[in-house]
Simulated assay, not measured.
Amino acid sequence: MKNPVKKIAAIHDLSGYGRASLTAIIPILSSMGIQVCPFPTAVLSSHTGGFKDFSFVDLTDSMEDYMNHWKKVDIKFDCIYSGFLGSARQADIILDFIEVFKTDSNMVVVDPVMGDNGKFYTTIDENMVHKMRDLIKKADIITPNLTEATYLLGEEYIKNIEEDQIKKMLVDLSNMGPEIVVITSVPDLYISDNIDVFAYDKESNKFWKIGGKYIPSDFPGTGDTFTSVLIGSLLNGDSLPIALDRSVKFIALGIRESFGFTYPAREGILLEKVLDKLKMPMINSNYELLE
């Protein structure tokens, strides 16, 4: 039976304060007309970006029962979307989840949340990197930032990276399993105030680049926002370059809107002020097909 509304299993943490993970994913995808079914990996009092001494409840021991109930009631998903993991063991549970709920007609998206700016997040270690490598083998799409891409490949983080090196990374990551690889947060080597997103589609053997102006701010949760808009756009019928472009533009819009207000940036971008823009038609597309 086909879902009357597209349905996503969102395997992420729930942070009580700050717009990240499920508190960003649910409103974004819901506003795009997609039902989000949360599968929480951990419950935190706040997200980990900019907060100290946050409470952290690891839900690993409850995840299998959670999954088994969904299996029993025979839920059909159009997408399985995993992000932040509360423990390395959770990767094995997610692999089981994919085995149970993956079909020929749905897609698996893995955002391998591990770090940024060349460093691990506080709850991540090398063991998680090995588990993430196992997980992306089962993914159709992955969306690491530049730091996470280097961890997955076992390479050194290089901030000022050449375009040809990025293209090689995209192909190398795709050879690990996923059909589509997206690398975000890549500083533009030639335009100093740009930050780029690169993508590779194995089936068409095409590379894409979407550039955007860098705004000097640090809002946690933008990776969750980007991937959520990307998934929503693809499920709603957009092509890959248009979905990428829509995601980049929405992030830029959210940052510009938020940057104009005085409030703690660690709360994340002000999604409540820009969610209504997600259904606007795309104009002036900014993607570039690379040779």
Rank of each mutant, 00 (worst) to 15 (best):
P112N: 00
V113P: 13
N117D: 14
G118P: 09
G118Y: 04
G118S: 10
K119C: 11
F120G: 09
Y121I: 14
Y121A: 14
T122I: 15
T122W: 10
I124V: 14
I124G: 06
I124M: 15
I124H: 03
D125N: 15
D125G: 08
E126G: 00
V129C: 03
H130P: 00
K131L: 03
M132Q: 05
D134K: 14
D134N: 12
L135H: 05
I136S: 08
K137W: 11
D140S: 10
I141Q: 13
I142F: 09
T143K: 02
T143V: 02
T143Q: 01
P144A: 03
N145Q: 06
N145I: 04
N145R: 05
E148M: 09
A149P: 10
Y151F: 15
L152K: 01
L152T: 06
E155P: 06
E156S: 14
Y157K: 01
I158G: 00
I158R: 11
K159L: 09
N160M: 07
N160W: 05
N160A: 04
I161T: 06
E162M: 14
E162Y: 12
D164T: 13
Q165A: 15
I166K: 02
I166Q: 01
L170E: 05
V171E: 01
D172N: 06
L173G: 00
L173Q: 01
L173H: 01
S174F: 13
N175D: 09
M176D: 00
G177K: 07
P178G: 12
P178C: 12
V181I: 08
V182H: 04
I183E: 02
T184Q: 06
S185M: 12
P187H: 10
D188C: 11
L189E: 08
L189N: 07
S192E: 09
S192L: 01
S192Y: 02
D193H: 02
D193S: 05
N194G: 05
N194V: 01
